[in-house]
C-alpha cells in the first residue's frame, strides 16, 4: 500500500476544489457530526425539493483531505436525491470501507477513488463522516 493509492489525484482535486459548499438560513434538517479523535467536523443541511421526495444538500466542514474530498463527492452523488436512492450509495460506501464489496462507479462516482482509505482503519471515519451526516439529516427531515 502506498500513499498514492489513498491520495489519488481525483481525491486531491476534490480536496482543493470542493463542490457544493454552502449554507442556507432555513433547512428541513441540520446536523453536525464530529470525529472526536481528530476534530474533523461537518455541519450538513438538507432542504426538501417541493413536490418530490428529494433533498438538496448544503454543508460547511473542516478537516483532513479525505474528509473534505469525501464530502465534495457526496455532494456530487447525492444532491437532489431521495433517502431511498442515497441510502444505496451510503451502504455501498460503508461496505467498500469494510472491504466487503468491490467499488462500483455507477453507485459512487468519484467515490470509488476513496477505496485506498480502507487500508488505513484510522482514516475510515474521516471518509464516512459526511455520508453518515447526510443519512442522519435526511432521516430527520423525513420525520419532521
Amino acid at each position: 500500500m502506498n500513499l498514492e493509492n489513498m491520495y489519488q489525484e481525483i481525491i486531491l482535486d476534490h480536496y482543493k476544489h470542493p463542490h457544493g459548499k454552502g449554507q442556507v438560513e432555513k433547512a428541513d434538517a441540520e446536523v453536525t457530526h464530529v470525529n472526536p479523535t481528530c476534530g474533523d467536523e461537518i455541519t450538513l443541511q438538507v432542504v426538501k425539493i417541493p413536490g418530490t421526495e428529494n433533498f438538496n444538500i448544503f454543508y460547511q466542514n473542516q478537516g483532513c483531505s479525505i474528509s473534505q474530498a469525501s464530502a465534495s463527492i457526496l455532494f456530487d452523488q447525492l444532491n437532489g436525491k431521495s433517502l431511498a436512492e442515497g441510502e444505496i450509495a451510503v451502504d455501498h460506501m460503508v461496505a467498500m470501507m469494510q472491504r466487503t464489496q468491490e467499488p462500483d462507479e455507477d453507485i459512487l462516482g468519484d467515490g470509488i477513488a476513496l477505496v485506498g482509505v480502507s487500508a488505513y482503519p484510522a482514516r475510515v471515519k474521516c471518509a464516512l463522516l459526511s455520508w453518515m451526516a447526510w443519512k442522519d439529516a435526511v432521516i430527520q427531515a423525513q420525520g419532521s
Binding site: L3, M6, C38
Partner: peptide, 21 residues
Amino acid sequence: LHPHDVGQVLDNNGIAVRVGH
C-alpha cells in the same frame, strides 16, 4: 495541510507521531 494528512505521510515514512487535539 491538515494534521491528519501530515501524519499519514510521516507514517508512510515509518515515523509515528500523534495527530488530533
